[in-house]
Design a protein around this nucleic acid. Structure first.
Lengths: 342, 342
DNA sequence: TTGAAAGCGCTAACAT
DNA sequence: ATGTTAGCGCTTTCAA
């Protein structure tokens, strides 16, 4: 395994010169030398040692993508990263990070402390956090000083960079669409939202639009349901059994919408004939099922790109910080799961 | 940011003693010293510097998960890692790797050389390769000397560790199930299989079972289709338009099966009434759709666990190698997409 | 049971 | 335009 020293010797120059060439420090090395060094590098098959470089340079070229692990609050309920949103986001982040010549470390967060340790231990240049709660964000920010970007984080301080989407507007659009179709009793199905987050925002927008139309949302028409298909199948019964059964529901994720659809159909309730559904995300599942689900599209690849961009930007300025919050749009995609009430 | 030296000083011992304590080298340090050192460690909030450790120890505690990138052969066709199989596999690998106290680097392979460089650069302890071709496997193995485990790799040398499933049997079971239901003309839908791989195996098993039943497979009944939903919707037309239209099809992945289902239904061909379908993987989508898809279940979390186990095992023995090939079973899951032919 | 010295491969800072 | 020096924070080796 050749080292910088070996290359330097073979090229008849000093280590520094090789280092300068490799790091593209323009103007500090003559073209002839550059060529000779590069030649030796390929000859020897030299590959820089990233750990040595990190140790010396105090930067690692590693970017971490952190997400909630199995031992956290959702313990056992969901398999992290396996939902369409997260896996697409991860894939896109990986592509951008690699393209930027950086490395991606993927890390499940089971405790804020252990995560902070890992990041510090590796001198991670920056981190993107998916699905973190506001209090975790604060704790992390306090413990670990490095560029960070949070994704879909609502209600945190303006000191922290964040990429998100117009969740509240999404909720509004869902409600309005259903109202325009003629619905008056519309239910809401999604995970708990007692803490700030995308679900809470979507719910808020949803309620707001209902109220603007002079409609209310009965508590019995708010059904809690984890973001999983089976959970949603089960939740469909709760919707159907609710007093004054709604004629339409808004689900905060397409998987939930798909599960509800399955449950409704099993129960002999036709969609959209007897029950309309609006989902969220425009993930693949919304097109898999029949009828295809009317949903709110969010631009996940765009979100990933912005997340990486914000991070790289902070990296460049560091340690000067200028937190930025970026919000991407949502649009309604009309498909087949909405019709006027019976 | 306290260093080993700082801890040593504060505890009144040498760096080595602290190092020994931290690395749990039993018996080399008195219990009293251990306690004292540990105390100082928490007091100071000391976190070992992983890059320094790697540089010095020549091992990084990093495990890489490598998968085909966008610039490879599937360029533009699929978004890496976003299919249900890969995202679940990744999630499970991450959990096991983290639990073992290691770090996971996720890396898309756009060229064998650049991948080998990255791995060497980081002194990666070992790597798990998803979706690699036989020739890439060989090239990698030649370039980069480290524990490696390949996943679902068929037709490579016995020198290389591999975890896979009974793909051939899966093809057989699919065919037999359809034959038992009374079908005589059964189609095959899946990606190209001119190279060794899971698809080739599934096809081979499928053909074998057909032949054992005295049936053949017409070339027109073999429909090529990338592993994506839209591609499968398009492929459904090819199946329907084939001369001597089959009464059933075997798809090499559930997404394909789901796409076919959508296409068939759109064309007014009922499933399973006029067309039966068997999928593969038992991924979520098989339960999302209606009718639910009869499929071959594979144990993806099990595969991930075995992959990590094999890797850790090799790590322990290294540089002694004892390649192992492990094969997990497949089972038929009967659901709703198969019925006797009309 | 503990410590001192040397060095892993690189880069920053300062020569020349 | 190129070289020298001095570490980065840790572990290995050897000594006490």
């Amino acid at each position: 395994m050749p080292t910088l020293q070996d290359v330097a010797r073979a090229a008849g120059v000093s280590k520094m010169t090789v280092s300068n060439v490799l790091n593209g420090r323009q103007g500090r090395v003559s073209p002839a030398t550059v060529a000779r060094v590069l030649d030796v590098v390929t000859q020897l098959g030299y590959v820089p040692n990233a750990t040595a470089r990190s140790l010396s340079a105090r930067r690692s070229n590693i970017v971490a993508l952190a997400f909630p692990g199995r031992e956290g609050r959702d313990a056992g309920r969901v398999v992290p990263l396996t939902n369409p949103h997260d896996s697409l986001f991860l894939s896109e982040v990986e592509a951008h990070v690699t393209r930027a010549g950086l490395y991606l470390m993927v890390h499940s967060v089971n405790s804020v402390e252990s995560t902070a340790s890992s990041l510090r231990s590796w001198n991670v240049d920056g981190a993107i956090f998916l699905g973190t709660r506001a209090d975790e964000v604060a704790a992390l920010h306090a413990t670990y000083q490095a560029p960070m970007v949070f994704v879909d984080n609502h209600g945190t301080s303006p000191l922290i960079s964040n990429v998100g989407i117009e969740d509240r507007l999404g909720g509004q659009l869902a409600a309005r669409h259903l109202i325009e179709a003629g619905h008056r009793r519309i239910g809401f199905v999604g995970p708990r939202f007692d803490e700030p987050g995308v679900v809470r925002e979507r719910h808020a927008g949803f309620v707001q639009a209902l109220e603007e139309a002079g409609l209310g949302l009965r508590p019995e028409h708010v059904v809690r349901c984890d973001a999983g298909f089976e959970a949603a199948v089960a939740a469909s019964a709760v919707v159907l059994d609710a007093p004054d059964r709604p004629t339409a529901v808004f689900a905060t994720a397409d998987v939930i919408a798909a599960g509800l659809l399955k449950g409704f159909v099993r129960a002999g309730v036709s969609v959209p004939g007897q029950m309309s559904i609006v989902g969220f995300d425009d993930s693949e599942v919304s097109r898999h099922v029949t009828p295809e689900i009317t949903t709110l599209r969010q631009d996940i690849p765009g979100k990933a790109e912005v997340a990486v961009d914000l991070l790289l930007d902070q990296l460049r300025r560091w340690p000067a910080v200028r937190p930025e919050r970026r919000v991407l749009g949502v649009t309604l995609v009309e498909r087949e799961s909405v019709a006027p009430p019976a």
